[in-house]
Simulated assay, not measured.
Amino acid sequence: MITVALHGAEFFAYHGFYAEEQVIGNKFLVDVTVQFLPQGDLNGDEMANTVNYEHVYKICCEEMKHPRKLIETVAQAIVDKIKADYPFAESITLTLKKQNPPMKGKVEYSAVTITL
């Protein structure tokens, strides 16, 4: 089993339940881990035999552009797209963190984790 991961990918996006969150935006962090069995001999040094973490990052970028009320919805969309593009993935775990969520007190981040 091989694991490919991205940690702390930063995005500025407009996700949030409250209307003002969808206007002023916020900073988000994404951690994603994809576990899989290689699709061929890794000694062949071919991208087709693995999960391309640059492509995984592009998936995150694209999905973060679509404002949604719930970060759960954003996280699920990213996981679904990764699975569609890499059907050989055995496990995908994604954590999406919203920094400084609108609370009455100081909160570093809120987060949701989805594992497929």
Score class of each variant (00 low, 15 high):
Met1Gly: 10
Ile2Leu: 15
Val4Lys: 12
His7Asn: 13
Gly8Asn: 03
Ala9Glu: 12
Glu10Asp: 10
Glu10Val: 09
Phe11Ala: 01
Phe12Asn: 13
Phe12Gln: 14
Ala13Lys: 12
Ala13Trp: 06
Tyr14Gly: 11
His15Asp: 04
His15Trp: 07
Phe17Ser: 15
Tyr18Glu: 15
Ala19Asp: 15
Glu20Lys: 04
Glu21Gly: 04
Gly25Pro: 13
Gly25Ala: 10
Gly25Tyr: 13
Asn26Val: 04
Phe28Asn: 03
Val30Gln: 05
Val30Asp: 01
Val30Gly: 01
Thr33Met: 11
Val34His: 03
Gln35His: 04
Gln35Lys: 02
Leu37Val: 07
Leu37Thr: 10
Leu37Asp: 12
Gln39Asp: 09
Asp41Gln: 08
Leu42Gln: 10
Asn43Asp: 11
Asp45Trp: 06
Asp45Thr: 01
Glu46Leu: 14
Met47Asp: 11
Met47Glu: 07
Thr50Lys: 14
Thr50Tyr: 13
Tyr53Ile: 00
His55Cys: 02
Val56Cys: 05
Val56His: 06
Tyr57Asn: 14
Tyr57Ile: 15
Lys58Val: 05
Ile59Arg: 09
Ile59His: 02
Cys60Phe: 03
Glu63Gln: 15
Met64Thr: 04
Met64Asp: 09
Lys65Gln: 12
His66Pro: 04
Pro67Lys: 15
Arg68Cys: 02
Arg68Ala: 08
Lys69Gly: 00
Lys69Ala: 00
Ile71Lys: 15
Ile71Cys: 07
Thr73Gln: 03
Val74Lys: 12
Ala75Met: 09
Ala77Gly: 11
Ala77Cys: 05
Ile78Gly: 04
Val79His: 06
Val79Leu: 09
Asp80His: 03
Ala84Leu: 05
Asp85Arg: 10
Asp85Leu: 02
Asp85Thr: 11
Tyr86Arg: 13
Pro87Cys: 02
Phe88Met: 10
Phe88Ser: 11
Glu90Arg: 00
Thr93Asp: 00
Thr93Ile: 10
Thr93Gln: 13
Thr93Leu: 03
Leu94Tyr: 04
Lys97Arg: 10
Lys97Tyr: 03
Lys98Phe: 00
Gln99Met: 15
Gln99Glu: 08
Asn100Ala: 01
Pro101Ser: 14
Pro102Ser: 06
Met103Lys: 09
Met103Gly: 08
Met103Val: 09
Lys104Arg: 09
Val107Asn: 11
Glu108Ala: 15
Tyr109Asp: 07
Ser110Val: 06
Ser110Asn: 04
Ala111Ser: 05
Thr113Asp: 02
Thr113Ile: 01
Ile114Thr: 01
Ile114Tyr: 07
Ile114Val: 15
